[in-house]
Simulated scan of single mutants.
Amino acid sequence: MSKVFSAHAVSVDGYLSGRTPDGEKEFGRGLGDAPMLFDWYFDGDTPSQVFDGFKLSKQSVAFFDTAAARVGAIVVGHTTYEHSSRFGGGSPHPDAPMVLVSHEPVPEVGEAQALVTTGIGDAIATARELAGGKDVGLMGGGVVTSALEAGLVDEVILHQVPILLGGGRSYFQEVAEHVRLRLIEAVPAPGVTHLRYEVIR
């Protein structure tokens, strides 16, 4: 059976954006002169084979492309969808369809995007159908937290950037119970450390 996993760049203190994530220009940015959390996507000399325009370090590209190639469909939360200009009516992944999960109707959803308003379980089930046997990716802190609480996540990948933002939008929201993780891979690379965890059920 396909796996469900999340992958996102975060600061060491667990934020995916600085204190003013009020629009797409601030998404992923730290405070003042703090670097972008996504600089490592473009600071290397090795092109990604999955995402056009990404040039990563040799260490990062092997890890990143392996994870990206696993994705057959991706579930995205409404907040991330809006902060990302609705992905232009497409998907954040070049080769995988997107499933938007929302608590309310989204009239502007694109024709290439599937909308699910009946909860995270149904959204992941829809994504599995679209994934063709490949894995399902999760994008957005609310989506990841809801899926963790529902016991639907198999792995969590954190691309940890060596900066403390001290505030902003936290990647993980408050969960009702502890979620135990087991580190199964750690790859240090220029500007980022890639951490892959298994969710222990």
Rank of each mutant, 00 (worst) to 15 (best):
L181D: 10
P162Q: 06
Q113K: 12
K25W: 10
S102I: 03
P94C: 07
A123H: 03
L165D: 03
T20W: 10
I200V: 15
S17E: 11
G142H: 01
E177Y: 11
K58D: 14
E185M: 01
D39K: 05
V156I: 15
R29T: 13
R180G: 13
T66I: 06
V101Y: 06
P47S: 08
R70V: 09
L165T: 01
V175N: 09
F27N: 14
G18V: 10
S102A: 14
V99C: 03
D13C: 01
E24A: 13
I124T: 08
Q59I: 05
M1E: 10
S48A: 14
E24V: 10
D95E: 14
K134P: 05
M36I: 07
G14F: 00
E185H: 00
G14E: 04
I74N: 07
F38T: 15
G142K: 02
T20V: 14
P97L: 09
T126H: 08
R169W: 07
V187E: 12
P190V: 08
W40K: 12
R196H: 12
E111N: 12
V187F: 08
E149M: 12
K3R: 11
P107N: 13
D13A: 01
A150W: 01
V161Y: 01
V61Q: 11
A131D: 03
G191E: 00
V143W: 07
V76C: 08
A96M: 11
G191R: 09
G32M: 08
T117M: 03
E26I: 00
Y171V: 08
I163E: 11
F27V: 09
V153C: 05
